[in-house]
């Protein structure tokens, strides 16, 4: 695939909110990049900093975290997740990765259009800010 225009995106979803929302985009037959790979979690708060860094190392150009936001069924996990992503961004910077290569957002069970719109914007941002060695 053309890496410049078709970055590989890891999408982290949640069982309670965004996974059904992403399914809903499929039910509505909304098209988005095929180079996107969804994993299903109970809450992304489970992932330590190294998880994100290893995913970048493995070859992902962007990580899109579709959390439940403040609607999470678990107490205070969004706050903890937000703090963790700040640490991830700091580590990314050290490795020459751009902050636009990661996005923390909230996607609900019926946020199909919103999800596709945001994902497309995210991919545009990733393409725009890819490090030169990959962009070339």
């Amino acid at each position: 695939m053309d890496k410049k225009n078709n970055p590989k995106i890891l999408i982290i979803s949640t069982d309670a909110c965004s996974y059904p929302g992403i399914d809903n985009a499929g039910q509505k037959h909304l098209e988005y990049s095929a180079n996107t790979y969804v994993i299903r979690t109970l809450d992304p708060v489970i992932f330590p900093v190294y998880f994100y860094l290893e995913a970048f190392d493995a070859g992902y150009d962007g990580i899109y975290i579709a959390s439940c936001g403040t609607d999470s069924p678990y107490k205070n996990t969004f706050e903890k997740l937000s703090a963790r992503i700040e640490l991830v961004v700091a580590e990314m910077k050290k490795r020459g990765l751009h902050y636009s290569q990661i996005k923390l957002t909230a996607i609900c069970t019926v946020c199909a259009d919103h999800f596709v719109h945001e994902l497309n914007e995210f991919i545009e941002g990733v393409v725009e800010n890819m490090p030169p060695k990959i962009k070339a």
Partner: peptide, 30 residues
């Protein structure tokens, strides 16, 4: 409640969430 918030708190990686082990998910991702 299976939220997993405790998992990254352990610097020694001594806690896992059964069914959602980080090593397993990383293997899947890679």
């Amino acid at each position: 409640v299976s939220c997993g918030a405790c998992v990254p708190a352990c610097k020694k990686n001594a806690i896992k969430l059964n069914g959602y082990e980080i090593t397993t998910i990383l293997a899947e991702v890679k």
